[in-house]
Amino acid sequence: MKNVLITGANRGLGLALAHEFDKHDYCLYLVVRSNTAKTELAVVFPKAKFLISDVTSDSYESKLSEWLELVSLDLVINNAGSGTKAPTLELTRPEYLRKEFETNCIAVLSTVKGSLDSLQRSEEALIVNISSRRGSLKMQSELAAKGSGCSYSYRISKAAQNMLTLCLADDLEDIGIKVVAIHPGRLLTTMGSSDAHMSPAESASRIVQLIESKQLKNRDYVSVETGLLPW
């Protein structure tokens, strides 16, 4: 049985991914922010393991490392994310950027560092960072996001996360760990875009299919809708 760690597992895409990996007989290691979330999920996934922690807290990395001390992890899904509805310079505030950068980038780094020993115990480990098409500098330069309503803070933090993905891919390939970024599609969630059309369940199914079919290569940046994206 394979083991998967999912952050932000209590709602949206994270919850859909937990359901999909459970169908594929993975052992679930779920990171959630509250006892309430744990209690609710434990009913649905009685065999799952839970860590209650805010992924942006200073203690998160050490708590994660201790929790996973004897675990062999095959897969880490960095799904926890945040966004702010501030698509213009007038509406954007520095605190929005700080919040999104903490969640969408620094927390990913903390998760990888906290789970690295466990990933190294696997013969074929993979890190999947749930990114966004809005993190693509090339697409931004070609006006793909102009007028989309997507916030400065979300775009900037996802671009930073993409650079982190490439840094990790460079560093970890020498120890046999692959790192990829996936745009999960235009999801019908609370953070969904104006052109959203895909359910989290459909996205999760496509993501798991990509993983199970071993189609993902180190340094890939993939959309579940259109294939490879430009960084």
Rank of each mutant, 00 (worst) to 15 (best):
M1H: 14
K2A: 06
V4P: 14
L5Q: 11
I6Y: 01
I6D: 06
I6N: 03
T7H: 01
G8P: 15
G8M: 04
A9N: 00
N10T: 08
R11K: 15
G12L: 10
L13C: 03
G14M: 04
G14D: 13
A16L: 11
A16M: 04
A18I: 02
A18N: 10
A18C: 06
H19Y: 15
F21K: 14
F21A: 13
D22W: 09
D22S: 15
L28K: 02
Y29C: 11
L30C: 04
L30K: 08
V32I: 06
R33F: 00
S34E: 08
A37Y: 00
E40L: 14
L41M: 09
V43C: 07
V44S: 11
F45M: 12
F45G: 07
P46G: 08
P46D: 01
K49L: 14
F50Q: 01
L51C: 03
I52H: 04
S62G: 05
L64V: 06
W67V: 04
W67N: 01
L68Y: 04
E69T: 14
L73P: 10
L73R: 12
V76G: 07
V76E: 08
I77S: 05
I77L: 05
I77D: 03
N79C: 05
A80I: 10
G81T: 10
T84M: 08
T92L: 05
T92I: 13
R93T: 15
P94D: 00
Y96Q: 13
R98D: 14
K99D: 14
F101K: 03
T103R: 03
N104F: 02
C105K: 05
I106N: 06
I106K: 09
I106P: 06
A107C: 09
V108W: 05
V108Q: 07
L109P: 09
K113T: 11
K113P: 07
L116H: 07
L116E: 12
D117S: 14
L119H: 06
L119E: 11
Q120P: 06
R121V: 12
S122Q: 02
E124K: 12
A125S: 06
L126C: 15
S132P: 10
S132N: 02
R133I: 09
R134Y: 05
L137F: 01
L137W: 02
L137A: 02
M139W: 07
M139C: 08
S141W: 04
E142M: 02
G147C: 06
S148L: 00
C150Q: 08
S151F: 01
S151N: 08
Y152I: 14
S153F: 06
S157F: 03
A159S: 03
Q161C: 01
Q161W: 00
Q161P: 02
M163C: 11
T165I: 12
T165S: 09
T165M: 11
T165Q: 15
L166M: 10
L168M: 08
A169D: 01
D171S: 10
L172S: 02
L172N: 00
L172M: 03
D174F: 02
D174S: 04
K178L: 00
K178A: 01
V179S: 07
V180R: 01
I182K: 08
P184S: 04
L187A: 09
L188E: 12
S193E: 03
S194P: 07
A196H: 06
H197I: 10
H197M: 10
S203G: 14
S203Y: 09
A204Y: 12
S205E: 12
R206H: 15
V208L: 13
R219K: 12
D220P: 13
D220A: 04
D220R: 05
V224A: 02
G227D: 00
G227H: 07
P230R: 02
P230Y: 00
